[in-house]
């Protein structure tokens, strides 16, 4: 009975630490995969906020609308949700462009309370329409032959999520190219940096506002297509997506793609770690506490700048 534990304890500790590292790595991977989608949720929201100085409370509902279009394209015509952005982007662009031109341009210079109340009212209308049309039941995209999962030394990687994240990053890259290499993109950036100077340079600001809102809505819709593969779809989810977009913008800073990228990935990782430590029912709370902590240290967000108050 001498010391059987002498041989066992180190081996047990080794086993424990390997298990722990695997768990940690698994949560990191989960977080990054989630974070890629979060980036896509946030870029449109960040663009509209940065350029128009409007918090678009419709954002969550537009994402959900994108999810529904992808869902019905899949169940009715068998089109893969990964291809749905091809037609959802133009549809949502037209929707956003029209909405800004007809409605939001009328209040774009008004105080925060007014623009917030207006987009809240618009969100009530859109969300209620979806609730009436699609009901509150959660729907799910179920593939006939499901995607596989990879197993890398105990870390499980679901392939569908990898594809979704890769597409999200491709969309982000496209967004970057649009802003930096196209004429219209340069005009958007010009309006964001200095509206009055942009007017003097011959930019039609109302037009650019409408294009900006259209682009923001288009990317929200595209994010919705990708999310439809990963999360169940319901009009009730819109508030959740909206909250995430806001937290990401504050974490990463406003109006810049790099900021949304960092904020999105960070929130994904923070949430998965929070889920590991505190349980999944507290993921909203974790996000909000992180947000409060960041704001308490830096009231305009981590990379935020003054002037958009």
């Amino acid at each position: 009975m001498a010391e059987p534990s002498d041989g066992l304890r180190p081996r047990f500790l080794l086993w424990l630490s390997v298990r722990f590292m695997t768990l940690l790595l698994q949560n990191l991977v989960n977080g990054l995969l989630l974070g890629g989608l979060y980036v896509c949720i946030a870029i449109g929201f960040s663009l509209i906020w940065g350029v128009l100085n409007i918090i678009n409370l419709l954002h969550g509902s537009i994402i959900v609308l994108g999810s529904y279009i992808a869902y019905y394209a899949f169940t009715m015509f068998g089109i893969s949700p990964f291809l749905a952005p091809l037609f959802v982007i133009p549809m949502m662009f037209a929707f956003g462009y029209g909405l800004q031109l007809a409605v939001l341009n009328r209040v774009v210079d008004k105080p925060v309370l007014i623009t917030l109340t207006l987009t809240f009212g618009l969100d009530l209308i859109l969300n209620n329409f979806m609730l009436a049309a699609f009901t509150a039941n959660f729907r799910r995209v179920v593939f006939k032959d499901p995607f596989e999962t990879l197993d890398l030394y105990g870390v499980i990687i679901p392939v569908d999520r990898v594809v979704a994240m890769a597409l999200a990053l491709v969309l982000t890259l496209a967004f970057y190219l649009l802003l930096n290499s196209s004429r219209i993109g340069r005009a958007i950036v010009a309006v964001r940096n200095d509206r009055d100077a942009a007017v003097l340079m011959g930019v039609n600001v109302k037009q650019i506002y409408a294009v900006t809102f259209g682009v923001g809505a288009a990317f929200a819709g595209a994010a919705g297509c990708l999310l439809s593969v990963v999360f169940p779809i319901s009009p009730m989810s819109s508030g959740l997506y909206l909250g995430k977009a806001f937290v990401i913008c504050v974490l990463g800073g406003l109006g810049s793609i790099g900021g949304a990228l960092i904020g999105g990935l960070a929130l994904g990782v923070i949430e998965s770690m929070g889920v590991m430590l505190a349980g999944p029912e507290h993921s909203v709370l974790t996000g909000f506490l992180v947000l409060l902590a960041v704001l308490a240290i830096k009231p305009t967000g981590l990379a935020g700048k003054r002037g958009y108050e």
Binding site: L292, A296, P299, T300
Partner: peptide, 26 residues
């Protein structure tokens, strides 16, 4: 902490407060 924020930041932080309280009550 939250009255140090202004404009949109304050608006959304105050909006989030209700969500957090609801989550806690849940």
């Amino acid at each position: 902490p939250i009255l140090r924020l202004r404009g949109h930041y304050f608006a959304v932080a105050s909006l989030g407060l209700g969500e957090v309280f609801r989550e806690l009550a849940m």
